[in-house]
Amino acid sequence: MMTVLLQRRISGHGRRSGSLAKRWPRVKERPEIAVDWSGLIAQIALRGDREAFRRLFEFFAPRVKGYLLRTGSSEAEAEEIAQETMIALWRKADRFDPATSGAVAWIYTIARNLRIDAVRRGRRAKRMLQDIEAEYRPEPVESTETTHGRSQEAAHVEAALQRLPVQQSEIIRLSFLEERPHSEIAALLGIPLGTVKSRVRLAMNRLRELLDDLK
């Protein structure tokens, strides 16, 4: 499942040359991967487990902050959103459904939504405070979509991602999620600057195809 994706991480010194396989080895390098984050979230929902919260906080809060710093947030904003993300995790723990999204992806969406909110708040002081979650996770219009259907959907998505070649998921991540400039991506992957754009497009088309094929 997610483990395959999680092992392909960019290290701080990604400029080494060599094959992608060398840079993102498939061997397990991070023992934390074995932690059952969904189980810890369930413990919070079931009995307000503070120890579970602390473990989630210790792992995720610094990563949320690091991710936000990487993608352009200020120190103060990253600190605040990292805290708010964890507070939101506590409050929404009972609404987390491990069958429809992985714990890590769920936490990502919380942080992302809070960052959007912060951007909007910054631009207009008298902004309406709102839970923008509904905007991001709009209820599907089709009423036939059941919980069972949703977890099947999640399995489809997971299967498509597993079939996506490592290089392609990596370039999507570098470009859209880590928001690295094309020049940096070219240097990281050791490819000419001029081909970054077409490779990104190729990767996204491939992802679309894989998602469509599984239907």
Binding site: M2, L5, L6, R8, F60, R63, V64, Y67, S101, G102, A103, V104, A105, W106, I107, Y108, T109, A111, R112, E153, A154, V157, E158, A160, L161, S169, I172, R173, F176, L177, E178, L207, L211
Partner: peptide
């Protein structure tokens, strides 16, 4: 949904 999973991996 696929992007959100990649976002989780990035996180």
């Amino acid at each position: 949904a696929a992007f959100e999973r990649l976002g989780g991996a990035a996180l």
